[in-house]
Amino acid sequence: MASITYVEFNGTPHKVEVPDGISLMEGALQNGVPGIDGDCGGNAACATCHVYVDADWAGKTGSRSEQEEAMLDLASDVRPASRLACQIFASGDVDGLVLHMPETQH
């Protein structure tokens, strides 16, 4: 179980518990966190789960796959901290992680 805080673009935080092995996109959808759509169901194929990973956590969340890179490249307001939440999975390593959301999803 990982405790994840999703922060909406307007600053509203949502702290939820995500079971191990579940993607952080699923974690948002299952807990009704607004601002993440997850249209492709977690295939890194829609970029509607775009989030910014706080710098302190970059080492724990792994790196972008080639497909993820290709999709992020076409999203709006992409930054070095950008990731697709469906490509990060809950585990003890990311317990306490804070994710910020962009103004809009693609």
């Binding site: 492709c40 295939n43 509607t48």
Partner: peptide, 18 residues
């Protein structure tokens, strides 16, 4: 989960006007 449909396609050509 109404948004999980494929009418806009997926991948790098996914509809830009969705």
């Amino acid at each position: 989960r109404p948004r999980q449909h494929m009418a806009f396609g997926f991948g790098i050509h996914r509809c830009v006007g969705n």
